[in-house]
């Protein structure tokens, strides 16, 4: 079997079986219970919450990210096994949202992690969240959800940005 065909099978299978990591960073975590439980039931699409990053395929950034959480999120993202995808919820990871002038919120997530799908809103309703999942499935099917390949390719740039946010560079500039 050729590599392309194998790839296609992989895509079809991973589209219908997206396991998300149950790691909630911000206020959007509240929108997930209706999506997971009986009202919207995302298990219809084969999605389900997973306890550890090793088993998961999708990382949900549910809302604002502080510098401290970003460190953990990056750890978690690097522990996940590719192909892996990132969905960002709400305004905050797009351009800062309500916390646009906060001293501790990283405002543009795509500078630290490759984001596959954004959902707008503050926060999005469960329908919006479902739309994001469906959009991600569509992208995977078309072979366009390639954030993890981007992360491998531009790894040095991402690492540099993460280090800048964690304050290593900041500390160095001030001489301590």
């Amino acid at each position: 079997m050729r590599y392309e065909e194998w790839n296609k099978i992989s895509r079809i299978a991973s589209r219908k079986s997206l396991w998300m990591l149950h790691f909630c960073t911000g206020c959007g975590a509240v929108e997930l219970p209706p999506v997971m439980t009986s009202r919207y039931d995302m298990e219809r699409f084969g999605m389900g919450p997973m306890a550890t990053p090793r088993q998961a395929d999708v990382l949900l950034i549910t809302g604002y990210l502080t510098v401290k959480t970003l460190k953990r999120v990056v750890n978690v993202y690097e522990q996940m096994q590719s192909p892996k995808y990132v969905i960002s919820f709400g305004s905050c990871p797009i351009n800062g949202g309500m916390y646009w002038d906060s001293y501790n919120t990283v405002k543009r997530l795509d500078r630290y992690l490759p984001v596959d799908v954004y959902v707008g809103g503050c926060m999005p309703r469960p329908e919006g969240v479902m739309n994001a999942f469906l959009e991600l499935m569509k992208l995977i099917d078309e072979g366009k959800a390639r954030g993890w390949e981007k992360y491998q390719k531009y790894y040095e740039q991402y690492k540099r940005n993460q280090k800048m946010a964690f304050g290593f560079e900041r500390g160095k500039n001030e001489g301590d």
Binding site: R108, D110, D116, Y118, G120, G121, P124, N131
Partner: peptide, 10 residues
């Protein structure tokens, strides 16, 4: 309220 996109400039 439904806007899902892959590009943040949208």
């Amino acid at each position: 309220f439904k806007l899902v996109s892959t590009d943040k400039h949208d």
